[in-house]
Design a protein around this nucleic acid. Structure first.
Lengths: 333, 333
DNA sequence: CTGAAAGCGCTTACAG
DNA sequence: CTGAAAGCGCTTACAG
């Protein structure tokens, strides 16, 4: 392995100057720099980043933690997490940060916090984490720089990127109401999820604004699962024949609802209007395509990375970024 | 930062023994080990993996290179690359290797080979790489341990994980023929892609086996793109009204073909049978759902990681692993 | 079972 | 603009 020492020897200069030249410091003469770069190339030098990291104690590494992958039974929602990652990746590379992606499927034996410190990771972006996870709690109680997606966190060096779930859910339900529907059910997600709570508030608000009665029994928990949403919708349609619209807290669940509706021999949108949330890629290819709230995942990823970068470089304090969504209307309502 | 030195001092022993105790070497007395672990915990010691890597010169890091992400215009195919990554991730973690995921969207300024050496990465798994990419060529000409997915590579420390494209394409086309169709077109992918060539051979073989004439004009290049496949199919249907079946070299393209067929007021499967390839998640939700060759991406990822691991640990020589697919038949044919 | 010492390949005050 | 030297936090022959 060719080291900086070999270059120094070949150039007849010190290791110190060699290091400075390779890193393009400006207190090195032009001639030295040129010589060093030339010799480095000739010798086939490849810098040892591990050594560099240890010596400089600096880190340009940024972790992406992705959890909750097992929730997506039909994997139709992978585009969601993947696009977020792509957005993070894009911004990180543009500022010369190295994104390290961790897909957490089962319990980790090391806590996030220790894991990051072991590797000298500068900051982390968290996606799909369960709010009450102790690992997550330890992290957000620390000073470790973190940006969370879709969950509000506060504290030193913390930031978040969210969407306005209440608002867009309200819009979605109002769009159904505009079609003349009066008995609108909701397939919601895990009870404890922040996102679920907010989307349910939007649903409720829309009903109230339009003088429609909110009925708790018309809201069922589909657990963000295709299969569960399918079963729950089927039951719902059997029990309450008056239902003429369904708002789902995710597209994945809307796909399950779609199947249930079709099997009940009801037609969309005549008998039942169906509205999803998220804008996963599959939603454009169903029959009919789904009306949905299209999230801009790449943008969310980019914003998360930008915010983390700003926190790390002290360009900005911790804050919350709200990314807008698009309302997609199809003949599913 | 608490270091090994602090622990040594607190325990009244040498740094050497402390290191050995922390790593559970067996030439350390039980009492020393216990003491060291206890003190480490008390002091809140977190090992510095960067230092460990530099000192030991060993690496348990395995790179996952994913290219070609920009090909998927509707992102319906993200489940493909993501599931492969999940499979790799799963196996790697099970043998205590750390998978480092690199999403390559644009040109990298460093070659793969140098990039890996800079970071002391043990081996790499390549997915979606273009065979004629010079970066890729440099890598496979080196001794660097690599496993490629969907492309055959040979050489020292090389391996690959593939599927039998010819065979399954032949099966697909024969299934269409069994339905009595006689004028079967093909939407193929990039001309130079290995996968395209093999799938086309399968198509051709099926025709010949069934005494149907192969017509070059019925094979068009959809470039693995939804939009292009849509346009090409539309044109194809206008130009050759006799077409009664279409085999697509990918599901993403089949989705485009589906749209074109529907817009031509032809019915599936009566007028035209449609068969895809890959088994992306969206294909189950179209109307009708797509007949397709379902790849097991998670399995491919796992096998790739296992093979790389075996090459790295000298448990196995370089070789090719063929992963089977499932034939999914729906009323699209 | 234990420890002193060299070393991994860099960076960075410090002094000139 | 340059260099000698200490140091980053570990590991590992080697000698006992």
């Amino acid at each position: 392995m060719v080291t900086i020492k070999d270059i120094a020897k070949a150039c007849g200069i010190s290791v110190t100057q060699t290091s400075r030249a390779l890193n393009n410091y400006d207190d090195v003469s032009k001639s030295t720099k040129e010589k060093v770069h030339k010799v480095a190339k000739e010798l086939g030098y490849v810098k040892n980043i591990t050594a560099q990291r240890l010596a400089s104690k600096s880190s340009n590494q940024l972790a992406i933690i992705t959890q909750g992958l097992e929730d997506d039974d039909n994997q139709v929602g992978t585009s969601v997490v993947f696009n977020t990652i792509k957005g993070i990746n894009k911004f990180a590379l543009s500022v010369n940060y190295e994104p390290i992606i961790y897909l957490v499927e089962s319990k980790m034996d090391t806590s996030f916090y220790d894991f990051f410190r072991q590797r000298n990771i500068a900051g982390a972006i968290l996606q799909g984490v369960k709010y009450d996870d102790e690992n997550f709690q330890q992290l957000i109680k620390s000073d470790f720089p973190c940006v969370a997606i879709d969950v509000n966190i506060e504290g030193k060096n913390k930031g978040c990127v969210v969407i306005n779930n209440c608002y867009y859910s309200m819009i979605a339900v109002e769009k159904i109401i505009e079609k003349g529907k009066k008995n609108i059910a909701m397939i919601s997600g895990h009870k404890h999820a922040m996102v679920t709570i907010e989307r349910k508030i939007g649903y409720q608000t829309a009903l109230e604004k339009n003088s429609l009665k909110f009925k708790e029994e018309l809201v069922v928990d589909g657990e963000f699962s295709y299969d569960i949403a399918y079963k729950k919708t089927k039951k719902l349609l059997e029990d309450y024949s008056e239902i003429d619209g369904i708002f789902c807290a995710s597209d994945t669940m809307a796909l399950g609802a779609l199947k249930a509706i079709q099997e009940s021999n009801k037609s969309i949108p005549k008998d039942i209007s169906l509205f999803g949330f998220d804008g996963i890629s599959t939603s454009r290819f169903t029959n009919p395509p789904l009306s949905t709230i299209q999230q801009n995942y790449i943008k969310k990823g980019e914003e998360a990375a930008r915010l983390l970068y700003e926190i790390l470089t002290k360009k900005s304090k911790e804050r919350t970024i709200v990314v807008p969504c698009d309302v997609i209307l199809t003949n599913s309502i």
